[in-house]
Amino acid sequence: MIHNDNSKANILLVEDEENLHDTLKLNLELEGYSITSAYTGNQALKAIQNEYFDLIIMDIMLPEIDGISVTENIRVQQLDVPVLILSAKNTGADRVLGLRKGADDYMTKPFNLEELLLRVEKLIQKNKKLQTKETVGDTYEFENNKIDFKAQEATTWDGKKVDLSKKESMLLKLLIENKNEVVTREKILQVVWGYNVYPTTRTIDNFILSFRKYFESDTRNPRHFHSVRGMGYKYTD
């Protein structure tokens, strides 16, 4: 596999079976990745505190703390690093649990090495794209609307002042930073609501309706804030 960029991606490999660990480490290093090894859940958590990773490959069955709990812990800390879970269990329930707790991908053992390497590369590339998203500053203007994220207030297209709640500000910022792209409900839940609270889709829809009321001159034909059925939400300027 050819890596387009020269910077080595840094991978945390969390696997307590030594033979498998060594095999994976060797193959990943041959692909040009830099590998940090952890053999227990606690070692993994320690490593995450100490350095930045582009990807974590996480076994579920680990001594001390299992891989699902480690993944949950990473997400509670608001870390966006992609996590690929390896599991000896092949039930749908385990896969769903892993993904619900914040894993980005899930493979069951025994797995095909080539497929693992492909998925690793995909997750790292996707993460790099996300990292280079434009971030918006403290204020943002579009049409005649102005949003002040710091003060949590907005001036609408017809000159009205509106106070924004913390959640409204966060959701606006997330949508604007991902301009012209659909932001999934999962991403919104992760960034705006955190992991333990699951608002219904209707809750997010109501936020979008509020944004249209504030920022659209024609709420029936919104230009900026869109619900994309079955997928998520989108801002266009």
Rank of each mutant, 00 (worst) to 15 (best):
N180V: 12
Y214I: 07
K146D: 03
E31A: 08
P63N: 14
D237K: 14
T139E: 02
D104F: 06
S37T: 03
I65Q: 03
G32F: 00
R212M: 13
P82N: 10
L24R: 03
M1A: 14
L13D: 05
H226I: 11
R185F: 09
D94M: 11
F225M: 05
K173S: 07
K213F: 11
N10V: 00
I48R: 06
K133N: 08
V192A: 03
A151R: 06
P222W: 12
Y52E: 10
T201F: 11
E64M: 11
T200F: 00
E143N: 15
F211G: 03
T40Y: 07
I85T: 07
G67V: 12
G159I: 05
V76H: 13
S169T: 12
L24N: 00
L24E: 01
Q77S: 14
L175E: 08
V228P: 10
N145P: 05
D158G: 07
D218I: 13
Q152N: 12
V14H: 01
T201D: 01
A44T: 05
V76P: 00
K128Q: 05
D94Q: 12
Y235H: 04
A154N: 10
K150N: 06
D66Y: 05
I68Q: 11
R220Y: 15
T23R: 04
G32L: 01
K128E: 06
M170A: 13
T139K: 04
S210C: 14
T91W: 08
K8N: 02
D59G: 13
E168T: 07
K234N: 02
L189E: 04
L117M: 05
I60P: 01
M231K: 14
T108R: 04
I147K: 01
Y235V: 04
T156D: 11
T236E: 02
L117V: 12
I124C: 00
R95A: 05
K166A: 02
V120R: 02
P222S: 10
R223Y: 11
H224A: 11
D205C: 15
L171S: 08
S87M: 07
D104Y: 02
G102E: 03
G194H: 09
D138C: 07
V182K: 11
I60D: 03
M1N: 10
T155F: 15
N221K: 15
N90C: 06
E141K: 14
H224F: 15
L45K: 08
M1V: 14
D205P: 15
K173D: 02
E216P: 14
K146M: 10
L99F: 00
E18N: 13
E15Q: 15
L55D: 02
E216D: 09
M58N: 07
N178K: 14
V183T: 12
S37M: 01
E216G: 06
E64Q: 11
E31I: 05
H21G: 03
I2D: 03
D59H: 14
N27D: 00
R223V: 14
I74G: 03
A9R: 08
V120D: 01
K160G: 01
E181W: 10
N127H: 06
E115S: 12
V191F: 10
F225I: 13
H21T: 00
R229L: 01
T219M: 15
L26S: 02
R119M: 05
